[in-house]
């Protein structure tokens, strides 16, 4: 588990990073927090010729909260999100999700850009990005562009990023103060990757839910929006019958594969339970 041989660069600007990536034609890898890439190097499943360390790129470290929403620089670490008092009201769903990310040590190192680029189907932030319709700003040799979260994730560990591009920023839309939300995750041990997790929010209008967004993590090859479950709650006042409908709709809208940790049938049921519980949290209804 010694790392394979590679060259190392530690530039200070995005333009230098892009130039290095472009010059190595897919053989270079950006190193953010290293919480996924370094183990992959140790297992020799990633064999880049060059590691481009992003730790000195100052322009990737910002957390900006404006009238348009929240912008997280790609090198923002989980710890910085959890320690930012503004975010607790500016985006409580993000905070709830990030609290489930791995362990203390990993949260001190891991970054939002790294998690997005790695695109593990069971990771929290990609799920939040899809649920909240985030935009991902990226920069490459051809310039900057913005990709919708729904288009960014293309499969397990697969994204819309080109080999010369890096993520610069994740943009989450503005979060209304009265928005209701819930986040529920089930993992074998605290800090493990989710077997399934649900992220959801809705706004209220005259006692009825509207603008429901329900996201599912760990039940497909990428994070999903569960439109059928959203339809089940939009326009309703949340009660036991609605919760049961949303649970059933969530389950029915996924078709997870079997793997060593669980059958597809288990995950299919589990995502329903996660949606049910997250919805209870959002509506302030007790477990029965």
């Amino acid at each position: 588990m010694k790392l394979p041989p590679f060259d190392y660069a530690c530039p200070t600007s995005v333009s230098e990073v892009v130039a290095l990536l472009a010059a190595h034609d897919g053989e270079a890898k950006p190193l953010a927090g290293g919480q996924s890439l370094v183990p992959m190097l140790a297992f020799r499943v990633a064999l880049p010729s060059l590691l481009v360390d992003l730790r000195k790129v100052a322009e990737l470290r910002h957390i900006k909260i404006t009238n348009e929403g929240i912008a997280l620089g790609a090198m923002v670490r989980w710890r910085e999100i959890l320690d930012d008092a503004r975010l607790r009201t500016a985006h409580p769903l993000l905070i709830a999700a990030v609290a489930h990310v791995a362990h203390y040590q990993i949260r001190n190192r891991g970054t939002v850009g790294g998690s997005m680029a790695h695109a593990d189907p069971a990771a929290e932030l990609p799920g939040i990005a899809v649920t909240c319709e985030a935009k991902i700003a990226v920069t490459g040799k051809a310039g900057a562009r913005v990709i919708a979260a729904a288009d960014f994730f293309q499969g397990p560990l697969t994204t819309a990023l080109q080999s010369d591009e890096i993520i610069t920023e994740i943009r989450l839309p503005l979060w209304p103060a009265k928005r209701r939300f819930g986040f529920q995750e089930f993992a074998r041990r605290r800090g493990d990757f989710a077997m399934a997790a649900a992220a959801l929010f809705y706004d209220e209008d005259g006692g009825k839910a509207r603008n429901a967004h329900i996201g599912a993590i760990g039940v497909a090859d990428r994070p999903l929006r569960l439109k059928a479950a959203e339809d089940a709650i939009n326009g309703t006042s949340i009660d036991e019958a609605v919760i049961a409908k949303a649970e059933a709709a969530a389950s029915a809208s996924v078709d997870p594969a079997d793997d060593i940790h669980a059958s597809g049938a288990y995950r299919k049921a589990l995502i329903g339970v996660m949606v049910e519980r997250a919805l209870r949290d959002a509506a302030g209804l007790k477990t029965t």
């Binding site: 074998r188 940790h261 059958s263 049938a265 288990y266």
Partner: peptide, 8 residues
Amino acid sequence: LSPPRLWQ
């Protein structure tokens, strides 16, 4: 006694 096995 894993959760998926018990659930099953």
